[in-house]
């Protein structure tokens, strides 16, 4: 097994932990639904589907960049009241 890079800072007595590789996606906009059928219902709407990039998981739909406001408006038009959580980039 390859030797991982370790933290060089911090408490010299504390065990050094390997650094975990991670990919950071910034300014991502997405919808998280409580039920699978709700995801399907949203994707089945042609206008809304055009603003969504697709389905990341059963409960997560990715919004095309720049389409956030239009998605919110469309969701409200179809009677949904999403809880909107704005990140630091917005």
């Amino acid at each position: 097994m390859a030797k991982s890079r370790v933290e060089s800072r911090g408490d010299p007595v504390a065990p050094r932990l390997p650094r975990i590789p991670v990919k950071l996606h910034r300014n991502v906009s997405l919808i998280k639904t409580s039920h699978t059928h709700l995801s399907e219902e949203l994707l089945a709407r042609r206008k809304l589907a055009g603003m969504l990039a697709g389905r990341l998981t059963e409960h997560v739909l990715l919004i095309r960049p720049g389409q956030e406001a239009a998605v919110i408006e469309e969701l409200r038009k179809i009677g949904q009241s999403p809880q909107i959580i704005r990140g630091s980039g917005g």
Binding site: P21, P82, G87
Partner: peptide, 26 residues
Amino acid sequence: GRRERLRLYTHASVLEFASAEELEAA
């Protein structure tokens, strides 16, 4: 209650790990 069914995150950050084990470690 209807509002709780849908959460819309704008300009959020997503951390993607190579495996489930690494996510758990994080």
